[in-house]
Simulated assay, not measured.
Amino acid sequence: MDFSYIQNVLFEMGKFVFISNFILLLIAVMFERKVSSVVISLIVLALASGVMSAATPMLYSWSIKPGILNKFAWYGSFAFVDCMALYLLFKFHKLLKQHVSKVAQVVAGTFLIFTVLQSARFIDRYIFNTDFLSTIYHNAIPALNLVLVPVIIFFWLSECRVKKTIMTEAMQ
């Protein structure tokens, strides 16, 4: 495959992920109208996906060059961003004294899975020199990115329903 074609596909996919996360963040801000676990989670998610989307072309151009450090730039950078996002997610919850919602747990779990996938794939490919995790790596990350928004919406709506039920019962 052509280098520019692969680079364009990766960049376009990253932009789609960022845009969908950002739109979801805007919707959450409009509906929540205050700092909440959902808003914090979506801010961190949008920030992380934006950083990754912006870094993808540069990291890909490094990763196609020979040398293990160039390969580590790809996997290590994404794993680092995911780890930082995971840290920031819980740090912001603590700083803003917010309960960790189901949405935050889903986002945190996703960052953790991404970190494990990036690290395991690097170890599999460049330390053990196998391609055992190739299919899992190439399919799991796009699949998780595609299902993440609907899963977040599902848990967010279920939390809204529970809050509404609690408020209705309190008024009676």
Results as ranks from 00 to 15, higher is better:
D2E: 15
Y5S: 11
I6T: 15
N8C: 05
L10T: 03
V17C: 00
I19E: 00
S20Y: 02
F22P: 01
L24H: 02
L24I: 03
L26N: 07
L26Q: 07
A28S: 15
V29S: 13
K34Q: 15
S36A: 09
S37W: 02
L42H: 04
L42P: 07
L42G: 06
L45M: 08
L45P: 02
L45A: 10
L47P: 02
L47E: 06
S49A: 12
S49D: 08
A54G: 15
A55Y: 07
P57S: 13
L59P: 08
Y60T: 14
S61Q: 15
W62R: 15
S63E: 11
S63T: 14
P66G: 03
G67K: 01
N70H: 14
A73C: 09
Y75M: 04
Y75K: 01
G76V: 08
F80A: 15
V81M: 09
V81C: 10
V81E: 10
D82C: 12
C83Y: 10
C83D: 05
M84K: 07
L86R: 03
F90V: 01
F90I: 00
K94V: 04
K97I: 08
H99N: 12
V103I: 09
V103F: 06
V106H: 05
V107I: 13
V107Y: 10
A108Y: 07
A108D: 05
F111N: 04
L112P: 02
L112S: 13
V116W: 04
L117G: 00
A120E: 02
I123V: 15
I123W: 11
R125Y: 07
N129F: 10
F132N: 01
F132G: 00
Y137V: 08
Y137W: 12
I141R: 01
N145I: 06
L146N: 14
V149G: 02
I153M: 11
I153L: 15
F155E: 02
L157Y: 12
L157S: 11
S158N: 12
C160L: 13
V162N: 07
T165N: 09
E169H: 11
E169G: 00
M171L: 15
